Computed example of a mutant assay.
Amino acid sequence: MPAAPGKIRIIGGHLRNSRIDVPDRPGLRPTPQRVRETLFNWLAAHVGGARVLDLFAGTGALGLEALSRGAREAVFCERDAGLVAALRANLLRLKQDGRSRVINDDALGALDAQDPSFDLVFLDPPFAAGLWSAAAELLERRSLLATTGLVYVEAPSGAAPALPSNWVLHRETRAGDVHAALYRRDAGLA
């Protein structure tokens, strides 16, 4: 069932079919439903009890999906004040504000103030910004990932962001112009 204009829906967990408002913002492209479904099938055994970081959150769809499926906590980083307001309103309406924190800041700057360790990180910057490598390097340098943390990277098809050598490709898929990949952090390769 396609979402109404300006809305997407959570596809699994206790918030299944809840709608998320999507403000009209240039460059905002929520992760497609088909990709989210594939991703959370991959993550089924890992989300429950996880501490999640939704970097470059946008609508917060990935972090909200993780909360819906049992994540212990989600931290959302977004610099656009309008998107932050919409995300906070969605979290409050869906009664997820007690298990989440929204940081209105540049994602790379926000990483400097985070406490380790995240079990799962969603790394999906605006495609035009090209911030995958800088964010990945900062996640590693600041030791923000759990020893066996998982990182989801969404990039344009054909792009090959430089990622830390200890991030081992676990799964990947393509949907239209989007390349979605899940990496497993291997502390032994660091």
Rank of each mutant, 00 (worst) to 15 (best):
G58M: 06
T59P: 01
G60F: 10
A61T: 06
L62R: 07
L62K: 02
G63L: 00
L64V: 13
E65K: 07
S68P: 00
R69C: 01
R69T: 00
A71R: 06
R72W: 01
E73G: 03
A74M: 00
E78Q: 14
D80N: 12
A81M: 09
A81H: 05
V84R: 08
A85Y: 01
A86I: 11
A89C: 00
N90W: 04
L91R: 13
L92H: 14
L92K: 15
R93D: 05
L94G: 14
K95P: 02
K95T: 08
Q96R: 15
G98A: 15
V102I: 13
I103V: 15
D105M: 13
D105Y: 03
D106G: 02
D106L: 07
G109F: 05
D112L: 03
D112T: 03
Q114K: 07
D115F: 04
P116R: 08
P116C: 14
S117Q: 14
F118A: 14
D119Q: 10
L120W: 01
L123E: 02
L123G: 01
D124S: 12
P125Q: 02
P126M: 03
F127G: 08
L131S: 02
W132F: 00
S133H: 07
S133L: 01
E137H: 14
E137D: 15
L138V: 09
L138I: 06
L138E: 12
L139M: 12
L139F: 13
E140A: 06
S143P: 04
A146E: 11
A146Q: 07
V151P: 01
V153C: 14
V153P: 09
E154A: 10
E154H: 08
E154P: 02
A155L: 03
P161R: 13
P161E: 10
P161Y: 08
A162M: 09
A162F: 02
L163R: 15
P164I: 03
S165L: 14
V168S: 09
V168K: 12
E172S: 12
T173E: 00
T173C: 01
R174F: 00
G176C: 08
D177F: 00
V178R: 03
H179F: 15
Y183W: 07
